[in-house]
Amino acid sequence: MQPLTGLRVLDLTREFPSYPTILADFGAEVIKVEEPSSGDPGRYAPPLIDGESVFFLTHQRNKKSIGLNLKSKEGLEIFYKLVKMSDIVIENFRPGVTKRLHIDYDVVKNYNPRIIYCSISGFGHDSPYSSMPSHDLNYQAMSSILWLTKVDDKIALPAVNLSAMTTYLYVTIAILIALINREKTGEGQYIDISFLDSTVSLLSLPASLTFFGFDINNLPVRKLPYYGIFKTKDERYICLGILYEEHFWKKFCKMFGREDLAKHLIPSKEKSVEIKQFLEELFKTKSRDEWFKILRDAGIPCSPVYSIEEVFQDPHVKHRGLILEVEHLKLGKIKQLNVPIKFSSIKAKVNLPPPKLGQHTDEILHFLGYSGDEIRKLREKNVIS
């Protein structure tokens, strides 16, 4: 038995990432509630493989799907029955939508006072921006992440949905805290989580400097010549990660016959230029992988700058089991990222592939006590799919 076995989650979220997936990986039963005619819009986000979004395929494992029209009286009745038998509801509608649908926390808690209800939105439900449409790029911009990572006053479009993934982790943490609180008090809980709030929380180091009046543009670590990224002989890149660490810097200087530089752990502006030029010239003499082996063997903090394809071929990634294969109904074996948590005895498991729309509707309705004839009539009325 897994640690979350016995918990039931109603997943009303759309698009990606899939917020309850990590709960499902550790045993929770997650029921994805979808609009019956088209389902989660994330199913159709390009690129597609055999008509299915690659993003949906890699984010929605270990879930059951019910196609349910929440705008119908019968659909709401089914939803409320599910609420009575569930522990958690997670939704990411724009603020105000759940109230219009009569599935907001104030309604739901009347059917199950112990329910833990998590709302995820761009800015939270009480923000002056609460009704403003936005996406990951907007949160990274408003949190200053884009500004902090600019190079030569140029801001790059981020390739990682940092805000969404950070929020995903906070959602999981918040739900587990609420579960522990419910165990102690018997009380349910409403959780309001904002993408922007979650992203701002990543600013711990820059915020420390700003709060105490330091100029982030003059951050000392940015001026360290031995803490940076260098081009190698094969036109790739290596990272040198020495950070005010005298023993690493002395060892590095001795390796390459530059003991004269070892005493300049905190170099002057002129000496910093000299050290940087030395390092740039040095790293151009060998390939990236040659440098990685030399420095790793010497115990110097370093790393290759990988392409996305190279990440999944790295020995560490393979050894730690960060990639798993899931058997899909149509596509056969598909690869996904695994849970990056190692316990001594607890195991994450994949019990279900990403579901087809409404794949488990009949199973769920039978569980709720509906007869085959009742299910047929609900389907004829487009209440379910």
Rank of each mutant, 00 (worst) to 15 (best):
Q2P: 09
L4K: 03
R8P: 00
E15F: 14
D25M: 01
F26C: 04
F26K: 03
E29G: 03
I31S: 04
K32S: 07
P41A: 08
P41T: 11
Y44Q: 08
P47R: 01
F56I: 07
Q60K: 10
K63F: 05
K63T: 07
S65C: 08
N69R: 02
N69G: 04
N69L: 02
S72M: 01
E74S: 05
L76P: 02
E77C: 01
L82Q: 02
K84A: 14
I90W: 03
P95K: 09
L101T: 01
H102C: 07
V107Q: 09
N112W: 12
N112Y: 14
P113E: 15
I115V: 15
S119H: 05
H125M: 10
S130L: 11
S134C: 15
Q140L: 15
S143M: 04
S144A: 13
D152K: 12
A156N: 11
V160K: 07
L162P: 08
A164D: 15
A164H: 10
Y168D: 08
V171R: 00
I177G: 09
R182M: 08
Y190P: 00
I191G: 08
F195Q: 14
T199C: 15
L205T: 15
A207L: 15
D215A: 10
I216G: 04
L224V: 12
I229C: 10
F230H: 06
K231N: 07
T232P: 03
E235K: 11
E235M: 11
I238N: 04
I238R: 02
E245A: 14
F248L: 04
K251W: 11
M255Y: 06
F256G: 12
G257L: 14
R258S: 14
L261R: 02
K263C: 14
K263P: 03
L265A: 13
P267N: 06
P267G: 06
P267A: 09
P267H: 02
K271D: 10
Q277G: 14
L282H: 14
E290N: 08
F292G: 03
L295Y: 04
A298Q: 09
P301V: 08
P304Y: 00
V305D: 01
E309D: 09
E310F: 01
E310H: 03
Q313P: 00
D314R: 00
V317C: 02
G321W: 04
G321S: 07
L322D: 05
H328W: 03
H328L: 00
Q336R: 11
P354C: 12
P354M: 11
P355R: 09
E363R: 03
E363I: 04
Y370I: 03
R376G: 00
R379M: 05
E380D: 13
